[in-house]
Amino acid sequence: MSKEKTSHFRTTELANLPSQVGTMKAMTVKSPALSARADLSIFIPDQAKDLSKVPVVILLHGVWGSHWVWSLMGEAHLTLQQMIDAGELPPMILAMPSDGLWGDGSGYLKHAHQDFEKWIVEDVPHAVSEATGNALTAPHFIAGLSMGGFGALRLGAKHPDRFAAFVGHSSITDIAQLPLFVEESLSDYTQEDPSDHSVLETILKHRASLRPFRFDCGVDDLLIEHNRELKRAFDEAGIDHEYEEHPGGHEWPYWVTHLRETLRFFAKQLA
């Protein structure tokens, strides 16, 4: 008699959403990391429907947003499906979680009573696996924009066992920059480990186990000088990375355009 499979989550709600391509799912789970409900959108391209170990790309949103922005504002699923159809990418699943919906943005950090980092690193992969039947051991990648870039660069560096590569677009590089976007006090984001305040310090701390990573920023972005400073610091420290600047600001047209480079970068790691 086989043992009945148990869910990672106490409660789950799952539904298919209308989509021009592939299959889009909306999911709400009771997150163990948050002790609260949390949402994510999951996109399965047509070519992945009968596969069981498909690479998963987790896309983190910025402040003020939620799980729906990468699809409805960023058209990430359309970009992915087009690139797979064109033979540029192998089949990949997109996971687009909320940040936990704390304040203007959780920072994807551990807070006093909720662990928004653990939500992304542990709960989201379980949610994708349960919603799609995809193997939890499939390769996972992580990318994000703005606050999501801060999250992706830090979590990718801290969890090489989970993420095979990571990317930041227009990234906040230190929690000191959060007041540019949020009204909550910086004291709410203070971490026990000061290295968690900074992308640079996180990456330096975990340099021995770093997976491939890249980041980029628009030349008209309010965060451009912070990203340039981060690039210079990596060069001085001898940290292997890719960095690019492009025309554009802190806006969706920039992120829509440069998501393609992120997906190609992830596909390259699978080759």
Rank of each mutant, 00 (worst) to 15 (best):
G103S: 14
V182A: 10
L136E: 13
I93N: 02
I175S: 03
A138L: 10
L109T: 09
A86L: 05
A138Y: 10
K205N: 08
H113T: 14
T132W: 12
T190G: 01
A135F: 01
D161T: 14
M147C: 04
T202W: 00
I175L: 13
Q177E: 15
G156F: 08
H140P: 00
L178C: 09
S187N: 14
E122I: 08
L186V: 10
G148L: 03
H111I: 06
S187G: 05
H126N: 12
A138G: 06
F116C: 00
V121H: 06
R162T: 15
Y189V: 08
G103F: 13
P125W: 02
E201F: 03
L155V: 03
Q191Y: 08
G133I: 11
H197M: 01
Q114D: 07
S129E: 07
A127N: 05
E117G: 08
K110E: 11
F166W: 09
V124N: 04
A143D: 00
F150L: 13
I203G: 00
M96Y: 00
G151R: 03
G133Q: 08
D104E: 11
A138I: 08
A143H: 05
S170L: 10
P160R: 07
D188P: 00
E88Y: 12
N134M: 04
H206C: 07
Q191K: 04
L204V: 00
A127V: 03
Y189N: 07
F141L: 06
L89E: 03
L109W: 04
G133A: 05
V182S: 05
L89W: 09
A157E: 02
V124D: 01
I84S: 02
L186R: 09
H126Q: 13
K158P: 04
G151F: 10
I120Q: 00
A131L: 10
G149Q: 08
V199A: 02
D85E: 15
T190H: 14
P125E: 05
G148C: 03
R207I: 01
E184N: 10
H140R: 12
E117S: 15
F116E: 00
R154M: 12
E88Q: 15
T202N: 04
